[in-house]
Amino acid sequence: MKNSLKVERAIMDLTQGELADKIGVSRQTIHAIEAGKYVPSTVLALKLARLFGKPVEAFFMLESTD
């Protein structure tokens, strides 16, 4: 899964730590999501969507299997 979380975070001028605090996870979790090493749970993805005021699909994309 690809994501644009880092870009969205930069637009809001948030550090990884600040974003983590706002949604109740560790900074390492945000780092792992941005690096593509961790796929967030549905609950976490929805928390991010609510914070950014955008649908989940705005920053999480499935990669093509072709």
Rank of each mutant, 00 (worst) to 15 (best):
M1Q: 07
K2Q: 01
S4R: 05
K6D: 03
K6R: 14
K6E: 04
V7G: 11
E8S: 03
D13P: 05
Q16L: 10
Q16C: 08
G17I: 09
G17S: 11
A20H: 02
D21V: 07
G24E: 10
G24K: 13
G24Y: 14
V25Q: 01
S26F: 13
Q28L: 06
T29K: 04
I30V: 09
A32W: 02
I33Q: 05
A35P: 01
G36E: 03
K37C: 10
K37F: 12
K37E: 14
Y38L: 12
Y38R: 13
Y38S: 09
Y38A: 11
Y38T: 05
V39N: 15
P40T: 00
T42D: 09
V43G: 07
L44F: 10
L44Q: 11
A45L: 06
A45V: 01
A45Y: 05
L48P: 00
L48G: 02
A49P: 00
R50Q: 14
L51E: 13
L51K: 14
F52M: 05
F52I: 04
F52D: 03
K54V: 03
E57Q: 08
E57T: 08
A58C: 12
F60E: 01
M61W: 08
M61Y: 14
E63K: 08
S64I: 07
T65D: 10
D66Q: 14
